[in-house]
Design a protein around this nucleic acid. Structure first.
Length: 354
DNA sequence: AACACGGGGCC
DNA sequence: GGCCCAGTGTT
């Protein structure tokens, strides 16, 4: 005696999807590898931004085996500019695991997919529903927004209770006969029709059953309680070039932003500092061995770089030096090869100006 | 439960 | 300037 599912909403969304969907390269396949790559790229990333990255990535790495064999630097280089670089590192680590633990065959069940590094509940549901048509409902930002509006759900989407509630609701509404299509439909609907600001309610096929619309409160959903604050940081980058065509780079390895990327030798300070005070900073003395007068500031450039959770005030100093300390943490590289190294947008913008 | 993690587009 | 985006991992 099973309760019959109410598939009216699913039916509306799928009909809308068939009329309005975009043609996207990862929709032409049921190969879990390509779907996986696309889903990782699309985490917290718009389709327009991820599109060219996807095409480049799968061209260079057409199979999980080729990805597993690559150097991490090359994977990060392909990821350069996309942000959230742990996605690239985890992708690489997961490819190696698939090769070793699964003999190169992509896992076939939800738990196996979920066990891959960088794959959480959303991505696992997306992969198994798109590739294998298994009945797992996706819950992403689009689903939160669409469902919160249609059912006028006041529970904040970023609360533990809210996440549980929305997951349950999404699973109840899923069309088990065609989960892949259903999941694509609700996300595309959120991305194109039920958009965050100024949703297109006037020609929305779901407005007839939308509680937020009936209440004239579309703008209040989804409810969020979050409010993340922005930390200010002060970076002093030193562009140190030698007469023989070499310069210094540093690889970021700490648990911090841009882990795995390269940059110029950096001194970070707790506040904005004029150069006179910067000379007294520990990092500065360490870098230049405190031999006064051996360095000359030739050029200074300032840039502000905004991340979602940090505001970085960067100053670039072009210097000539007699000696710098090189305690193994700096890499002496040919200036003409510097483009080979993956760098942050901030550092890349600096190079573009030079 | 809160926080860390990028970058770009939109209003 | 604030919000949001086909979220996940760590603390």
């Amino acid at each position: 005696m099973s309760k019959e599912k109410d598939l009216r909403l699913s039916s509306i969304l799928i009909r809308w999807y068939n009329d309005n969907k975009r043609e996207l390269p990862w929709r032409d396949t049921t190969d879990p590898y390509f779907i996986w790559i696309s889903e990782i790229i699309l985490q917290q990333t718009r389709v327009d931004q991820g599109y060219t990255y996807f095409n480049r990535f799968v061209k260079r790495f057409p199979s999980v085996g080729l990805l597993a064999q690559a150097e991490e630097d090359e994977v990060l280089k392909l990821w350069q500019g996309l942000g959230y670089y742990s996605r690239a590192r985890n992708l690489h680590a997961a490819a190696k695991m698939i090769l070793e633990k699964y003999n190169g065959a992509f896992p076939r069940d939800y738990e196996g997919v979920l066990s891959l590094r960088g794959v959480g509940g959303y991505t696992a549901a997306a992969i198994v529903s798109f590739a294998y048509n298994q009945p797992y409902a996706v819950v992403d930002g689009n689903v939160f927004r669409v469902l919160s509006r249609i059912f006028a759900i006041e529970e904040p989407i970023d609360s533990t209770k809210g996440k549980k509630l929305f997951s349950q609701l999404a699973q109840e509404l899923l069309d088990d006969k065609r989960p892949g299509l259903h999941n694509q439909a609700i996300m595309e609907f959120g991305a194109l029709q039920c958009v965050p600001a100024s949703p297109h309610c006037g020609d929305c096929p779901a407005s007839v059953m939308c509680l937020a619309y009936a209440q004239g409160r579309v703008g209040v959903f989804p409810v969020k309680e979050g409010k993340q604050k922005v930390r200010a940081r002060y970076f002093h980058y030193f562009d140190i070039r030698f007469g023989d065509g070499y310069m210094l780079l540093h690889k970021r390895t700490a648990k911090d932003i841009w882990q795995g990327l390269y940059e110029l030798p950096l001194v970070e300070t707790g506040d904005a500092l004029p150069i006179e005070e910067l000379r007294q900073a520990d990092g500065f003395k360490k870098l230049f061995k405190d031999n006064d007068g051996a360095y000359i500031i030739e050029y200074v450039l300032q840039m502000k770089h905004i991340l979602s959770h940090q505001a970085i005030y960067a100053t670039f100093y072009q210097v000539t030096v007699q000696t710098v300390s090189m305690p193994g943490e700096y890499l002496k590289v040919r200036i003409e090869d510097v483009d080979e190294y993956p760098v942050s947008r901030l550092v890349h913008k600096y190079f573009e100006k030079m």
